[in-house]
Design a protein around this nucleic acid. Structure first.
Lengths: 213, 213, 213, 213
DNA sequence: TATGAATGAGAGTTCATTCAT
DNA sequence: CATGAATGAACTCTCATTCAT
């Protein structure tokens, strides 16, 4: 029980918890009202702290967005890579697991903003200013592209399809708009939607049946 | 030969042309820099008119966005409905034509913003404030949904799939992000991409082969 | 009477007058309360315009200060150079005229800030950031230094004194603090003070009397 | 051997040393960056203590400035008065000693700020708010004025010159701007500069030679 | 009708100051 | 005593909107 590290780690813990809370709240408000329509004042008010305290953790509003993007990206990437590197699974099984992960699990909590970011010129401009994203996003797409190529090589997926097209469509399986329509309005279960999407997608990219007969 | 309507219609024509030019320019800048990062001043400057003149056509910046959304939606809807109501085509053929329309034709000029709008909380909030979109968008999705249901009824598409899921995925076939990656970076032709996407999609939702043989 | 230049020049005139008024007011308030204690709001209020209007003329508060410095410096320099280049006068006569100019004329209106600027670390830091002053100030001191050297060469001033010391002291003859004490509190006339200062200064730097008798 | 005062005096000594260190550091930073551009945080960081500790010694940032002013003023006054009251010297000798004191000794360490203070509206406003300075400054000028009057009465200095003008110019002999130019840039020794300044000044205010022949 | 100078509400950001630890 | 996280008033600057010309 080191008395010198205990207080430091306690303070540090406090600090990180508050930081996470600010991020969480910011994501919520950004999603509800959009980045520009949200004032730092409102985020602070919802967290229950003063405006200045937000600046103790994030040097600017833009950095708050960047931190959010990073947080979500890292979370997603680590989970996706864990799945991608799990042994004894076919490419299809891995991709299906990733789809379920993205669709089911993450949507409940965070990452809604994450998906909106690249779709909106608004956000893209901001993040490009900060030179974030490129690498993170590239990491993720690279990982998925390899799985798809792997599946094609293994004869699971149609080898005539450009991998990039398959990738692009895979990324578009998961969308906030679709989620809200299907899960929010129609009342379907996330897992169910993911299953249907997987069914369509993998059937669509499947290799032709060997004319064995 | 009504002498009073002739000048009026000429004036009116001038007016509409200028309005269209403002809209076109606004769409360009909004796409480049995002709605909030764009000032009315910049739009006016690019058009070559004064700031005040923009307000002669559109009562507010938000209304400019709404008009843009309406313009694109109406254009898309009318073309889509034309295709949908063309006789002698199967549902699949119609949907494929629509996909090509959306992907190939429109992307060259406008509608980039159109796709970004619903994906971004930023924009959605603005348009909801103005109570636009609901109807227009609903009209479009309704039209597509009917085609899909029609195809299921005709035995073209898998009847076990919820139409709403098919619709959602169809809408996600077309994305700005995908377009930029595939056409902009990879150098694929829009029509080629659309063909691949159609191939995957329709194979994915196809009804099972009747074991007729 | 060109109708095309008239409106432009009228607008331009309006603009310049307003700009001058803002500068004048800013100088007053800066002198009264100091640069940092003065808010743009207060300047605008005193001029009787809105805050934004100030920014139509000066891109930032710092630029307002720079413009002020430039305005005063240019005015002083041009007048000083006019005196310095007037023919048929001895160096002493010219310097005396300059002293009277600085002391008497300018103090009534502007340039109070001007003298404070280099004396205060506060201001110096700001202006150095904007890379202004160096040249202007150098121009002025160079002009004076030449006059002093000229006087030494002509046998008017003591050649043993370093010109730079003479220059430094000449510049210090004129000070806001001294002005306020002598003119403001003691009630002396500016011209009278200048005469006394000149008497002391020129006697102090005079060349030794040739023991001609 | 009072056991209660010993620790108190030790504590007190500690306290005063720290206070002096804060003052010294504050003067340095104020001189470098200006009062308003300096944050309490920076002062504390340079001293190596926490921000709050500064407030244990000085109730506000303004009070820090006031304390600085008072410290320098008192130091100067006591030394000046010591010189002024030294017996067996002429007024000129005393004033010359004072000039050397001000110019040579003090400039090496502190008092740079001290001279800037009255020259800048920025600072003057602050100190006037706190109603400091008047007395201290008055004490100093009064002392000098008496010496000058004494010199005039003794026939050393020109009796026709208003004492206040002589005083004002004497105060202006010493300036930060001049010091930096002559000592900092030109490389002259402080004592040398002071000698030249004294030579000019006292020659300038000297009483006319009695036409004894 | 077109203009663009003027407006002023509102946002992001800073930092002197406080106080629980 | 010392600390430094938290505070929030105040400031600079932006830009959608208006309106006299």
């Amino acid at each position: 029980m080191p008395p010198s590290t205990a207080p430091r780690s306690w303070k540090e813990k406090q600090r990180q918890e508050r930081e996470a809370l600010i991020l969480q709240t910011a994501e919520e408000v950004f999603c509800e009202k959009g980045y520009h329509e949200t004032s730092i004042d409102e985020i602070a008010a919802r967290v229950g702290i003063a405006k200045g305290t937000v600046y103790l953790h994030f040097p600017s509003k833009e950095d708050l967005l960047v931190a959010l993007f990073r947080r979500d990206t890292e979370q997603v990437i680590s989970e996706v890579e864990a799945i991608a590197s799990s042994p004894g699974c076919s490419a299809r099984e891995k991709l299906e697991a990733i789809l379920h992960l993205l669709y089911g699990e993450l949507f409940k909590k965070r990452t809604r903003l994450f998906y909106s970011i690249y779709n909106s010129p608004e956000m893209r401009v901001l993040l490009e200013k900060k030179k974030e994203m490129g690498d993170h996003w590239g990491q993720l797409t690279h990982c998925l592209e390899e799985l798809l190529a792997e599946g094609q090589a293994a004869g699971e997926f149609d080898p005539e399809l450009p991998t990039s097209v398959m990738l692009s469509l895979f990324l578009n399986l998961v969308s906030v708009r679709g989620y809200e329509r299907l899960v929010g309005q129609e009342g379907l279960a996330p897992a169910e939607v993911a299953r249907y999407l997987a069914r369509i997608y993998f059937k669509g990219i499947a290799a032709e049946h060997k004319p064995s007969c």
